[in-house]
Each structure stands twice: as C-alpha cells, then as structure tokens.
Design a protein around this nucleic acid. Sequence first.
DNA 1: CTAGGGTTATCT
DNA 2: AGATAACCCTAG
Length: 300
Amino acid sequence: MGAPKQKWTSEEEEALRRGVVKHGAGKWRTIQKDPEFSPVLSSRSNIDLKDKWRNLSFSANGLGSRDKIRVPRIKGPSSSSSPSPQLLLLPAPYNVAEASPAEDPEKSPQDDKTPSPKYSAMILEALAELNEPIGSEITTIYHYIEQRHEVQPNFRRLLCAKLRRLIGAKKVEKIDKAYKLTDSYAKKALAPMKDSSLKKKDPAKPSKASKNLSPGVEAAGAAAMKLVDAEAKAHLAKDHMVEAARISRMAEDTESLLMLATELYERCSRGEMITMLQVAAQREDQTHQSHANIRSFVHG
DNA sequence: CTAGGGTTATCT
DNA sequence: AGATAACCCTAG
C-alpha cells in the first residue's frame, strides 16, 4: 500500500477554495462531485476536502489574526473583473512577528530553568495530579493543562505527538484511549521526595493548605472539592481555588477558605466557571455576611 | 454525509 | 522536541 502521504498540490488547493466559494463550506461531497473540480480532486475524498479545509482555516486565522473565526472568504461574490489566477495562495501563518534574535536583554543564557514551557513536564504533572487508576483521557489531560497554562489552538494535536513520545520513553502507558503514568516512572517520581526538601521547582503547588481545620469545615470543603472534581470543569475549579487561596493569602482563616469552597460549589453547580479574582474580591467585600452564610451551610 | 476527535507521518 | 499536514474512526 504504499501510500506514504499525498501532499496537496496547488491545483487541488485552489480547486478546493473555488469549490468552497461556489458551494459553501460543508458541501464537500458536492464539491468533489462537481464536474468543475472533479478531475483535479478525483483522488481526494469528501473527507479529505473537509480535513484540508480545516487545516487551511487553522493556518490562516490561527496565529495571524483572529478576526474571522471561520470561513476565510477569498473573494467577493461579484468579482469578475480581475481574476488574478494565482494570487489566491495564502501567505501561510503569519508568525506573530518574533523579535530578532539579535538582542534580548531579559533572556539570560545561564538561566536554564524554564527555557520553554516544556510540554512534557506539564503532561507528566497533569497525569500525576489526575492520578486516575484507569488512566486519563486525552481530552481530560488537555483541559487540565489548558487551564494551567495558556496553550495554542493546535495544542491538542501537539498533545497527541507528545504523548506518543512519552510512551516511547516508557514514562507513559496507553490503555485504549486513556493515558497513564507508567508504574516504574510513578515510583521514580515519588521516590525523590525523601530528602529533597529544597525542591522549590514549583512553588504554586497545591498540596494541603489546611492544617488546623475543624472537622466540620474540612468535611464541607472536601465535599465541595469532591463534587467539583466530578465535573468536567473540575480541574479548572480546583486549581483556581488554590490559586485564589494563594493570592488572597488569607487562607489561614478557615472560614475564609470554606467561604471560597462554598462560592465555588455554588458556581460550579450552576454549570459555569468564574474568575477567582472576582470571587476573591467578593469575598473580601462581604466577609462578615459570609460567615453567617457559612454557618448555615455547614449546619444545614 | 458531515463534523470533530484521534492517530500517524513528515518537516523544522 | 515542537509544529504541521494528511489520514483514520466514530457519533450524530
């Protein structure tokens, strides 16, 4: 079968564009059947057209400009004056004007701690944090990382490749559609926590901030946490909660913390996510009133 | 049949 | 390793 990979030719690409202009995006079968483009696109299936158009769209508006989220209209409908046959080729992704490598004062070569986001680390951490015995679905991992770090629109595709690489490195195991840390790697990851207390690689690590919480508070918090975690947006909530706690630095106050959890719980129950800054702000504003509410919540 | 998620191959 | 393009699979 030797069909290594069939790259799209300029003719095919243009035929596709014209087809979309003529019939509209989504009518792949129609375009492919149209005698006008049929000869050129004979070796392409309707699905191929769709996929190609998707790639084209992402490249066109993914990085350069996000004005039009979809359908990069090539030409106006009544343009019969100057066809300009080959000016249709897209200028490809406009890289967001990367600064010249000549000077970069803020970048010190010696500081190699975080040269780049390091996707591998993010994935590994996500997997470790999720810690699902059956493994984590790729979309779950994606969402987890998405809220933790700002990612690009093509990150999803990247994730796939990354995962595959990690599997090759025996760090990750794939079970059906789920990904999980390999046993050996998990051990290795947990082992070095014996004497390396100076590990401040990630100061924003959640861990357990609660120390002297009263039973009631702890239970309520755990309950809220659990419930939230069950939802799809759980990762978001969890992390944001921790973040908020950090920002406010009033986490020591058990009631404050509970209040946060309550807020989160209520919001999440309604199905939407909110920015923690808002919650934090609200919290400060209505601290006094909240205490009463919290008590009611705990007892009721 | 189409839309979208997921996978593999190939190029920087 | 990061990114992109082509390809495959499945739900609606």
